[in-house]
């Protein structure tokens, strides 16, 4: 009697064999890319500007928030504006992963009910879409910071680890929230308020150094506060980020990713009957 290729037994919460899971996920990498690309194109389908919206969105966004801080703060030096745009764009990488991820499982119902594939592919696509949206904003930012006359330095290569941490954070959040949404659909309605609060709690419309020490100590609970601070140090001031900021964001990103992935993988075989 030969050994079976696959055995299906009653669902128990627990991790699937990780090696086989990762292999089948890797085998589907081109599907993830193609799926993400088509979802992204669908979002701008039928609009006059089409894919140009990928650049127009960040431009308009930074313009609107600039108006806000100019009117409220009454001042606008170039670093402040640089901080606003740089942080806003990285914030949207994380928040787009969240908003794209939340319904990735529930919207993928047809796919889930009719094909066997590693379900984690769907929140991964949400993160890939957020990344596709983030890349053009980087180009916009570099044009802006040149116009603003901000300095360049080799220290700016620190941007690479910071973006990697942000991607891990976005991925972890997408995975976690997509799974929560299967069991608690109301989370999708809460999400806009959560991301909006995160926006105001993070150093985007203000700079991290503007906060009092007491408030800053509370921000340890904000997963992206020090991530955005590190990003601003690198992208606006062209300095190396401080170690604490890097570590703080890395620990948060890892924690969210590990918890989210564990929760997701141990539950995903149950998704098909819950949709």
């Amino acid at each position: 009697m030969s050994t079976p290729v696959a055995v299906y037994e009653p669902f128990r919460a627990g991790l699937p064999p990780l090696g086989a899971y990762l292999r089948s996920l890797w085998a589907r990498r081109s599907f993830i890319a193609e799926f993400s690309r088509s979802e992204l194109r669908e979002q701008n389908y039928g609009s006059v500007f089409g894919q140009l919206w990928l650049v127009l969105n960040p431009l308009l966004l930074s313009g609107v928030y600039f108006l806000l801080i100019y009117i409220i703060g009454g001042q606008s030096d170039s670093t402040r504006y640089g901080n606003l745009t740089a942080s806003l764009f990285l914030f949207y990488l994380v928040s787009n992963s969240l908003t794209g991820g939340v319904k990735s499982i529930t919207a993928g119902q047809r796919l889930i009910l009719n094909t066997a594939f590693p379900r984690i592919m769907l929140p991964i696509s949400a993160m890939v879409i957020a990344l596709f949206k983030f890349v053009p904003t980087l180009a916009v930012f570099f044009v802006m910071r040149t116009v603003l006359g901000l300095n360049y330095s080799w220290q700016m290569f620190w941007a690479i680890p910071v973006v990697l941490i942000a991607l891990l954070m976005g991925l972890g959040m997408a995975i976690l929230i997509s799974c929560i949404n299967v069991y608690f659909r109301d989370i999708a309605s809460f999400l806009p308020y959560m991301t909006r609060s995160l926006l105001y709690l993070s150093p985007i419309l203000y700079q991290a150094s503007d906060l009092s020490d007491r408030l800053r100590s509370f921000e340890i609970a904000n997963p992206i506060f020090y991530l955005l601070d590190a990003w601003s140090q690198v992208m606006v001031y062209a300095q190396a980020p401080d170690l604490f900021s890097l570590l703080h964001s890395l620990v948060w990103a890892l924690a969210i990713f590990i918890i989210g992935t564990y929760f997701f993988l141990s539950r995903e075989r149950d998704f098909a009957v819950r949709l």
Partner: peptide, 9 residues
């Protein structure tokens, strides 16, 4: 393998 069985194998 889309839906796990409740009993059996």
């Amino acid at each position: 393998g889309i839906v796990p069985p409740s009993q059996g194998r």
